[in-house]
């Protein structure tokens, strides 16, 4: 084996030598031309996301809203809006759906409760950052117990079991999950072939109207990684586009209360 390879190498060398000795001499113009090094200047250019649209488009009327981007330090909401403008990804204008009553939908950063079509009580933000409550906050179950009664009375909904323990209810949830999975996955272009794709799990929270359309832009949950990891950013934006492309979802209105708030975990590890 080894001998064969050596003989082959030596033989090739010999053959080539013979060829080389005989070879036609190429003319001058066959001589290599050398690469010219071109000077390129380049610059990042201004983000145009904030430019006024070319012509007034009613549905794109500027609605400066605080994006649901968790900032490391808690600050009064109004300051954040101005601060966010030059650097962070710009605020998303709401999708032009009639169903969506504009600005007040986003509540997470507001300092006081904003009227919302999902009258869910949240604690006032300042208390959220009370360091003494971290343990309580980490234990969602405990927090839930401290909550005011769930908002289910606020929404007109058919009678149903108060718990999700019954088999029928579980079955219903499973079929809802299946319906959502089917509809979203066909719009999701996953990061095929990205390195360590199995770590690029993107969690997105969506809030839906009764017609299955988005009440507000999908919210990517791991914001800090979004800023620091370009693979994750690309994967997260692809997941967000999947939601934006495939809404409105076609889901049973009778179960609206179950799917109005949905969390989607985009997991490319099965590729």
């Amino acid at each position: 084996m080894r001998k064969a390879l050596l003989i082959s190498i030596l033989f090739h060398g010999a053959v080539v030598g013979l060829i080389a000795a005989d070879i036609i001499v190429f003319g001058e113009d066959d001589y290599p031309e050398f690469m010219e090094v071109e000077i390129i200047e380049y610059d990042e250019i201004a983000d145009q996301s904030y430019m006024p649209p070319p012509e007034p488009e009613p549905e794109e009327a500027p609605l400066p809203e605080p994006e649901l981007e968790p900032e490391p330090e808690p600050e009064p909401a109004p300051r954040r809006i101005e601060e966010a403008a030059p650097e962070l990804p710009p605020p998303l204008p709401p999708e032009p759906t009639e169903a969506a009553p504009a600005a007040p939908v986003q509540v997470a950063r507001a300092t006081q409760a904003v009227p919302n079509i999902t009258p869910r009580d949240k604690p006032a933000p300042p208390s959220r950052f009370n360091i003494n409550r971290i343990e309580a906050l980490l234990d969602k179950r405990q927090e839930e117990e401290q909550k005011p009664p769930p908002r289910k009375f606020a929404v007109n909904e058919p009678d149903k079991e108060p718990t999700i323990s019954s088999a029928a209810q579980r079955l219903r949830l499973a079929s809802l999950e299946q319906a959502i999975h089917t509809q979203i996955s066909r719009c999701w272009s996953a990061p095929v072939g990205a390195s360590y794709a199995e770590t690029l799990i993107v969690e997105i929270k969506i809030q839906l109207a009764r017609d299955g359309s988005l009440l507000r832009p999908p919210e990517i949950l791991n914001q800090s990684r979004l800023q620091s990891d370009s693979f994750f950013r690309a994967a997260a934006e692809a997941a967000r586009r999947a939601v934006q492309r495939c809404t409105p979802l076609d889901l049973p209105v009778a179960d609206y209360d179950e799917w109005k708030d949905t969390k989607l975990n985009f997991d490319p590890s099965k590729m």
Binding site: P70, P72, V192, L221, K263
Partner: peptide, 25 residues
Amino acid sequence: AALIAMLSMTPSRALIEVDITQFNV
């Protein structure tokens, strides 16, 4: 940041959580 992300999730009840594991190639 993780804490804030958690806070912004629906606190009042379990929301539907769906793992999207299939995709469009």
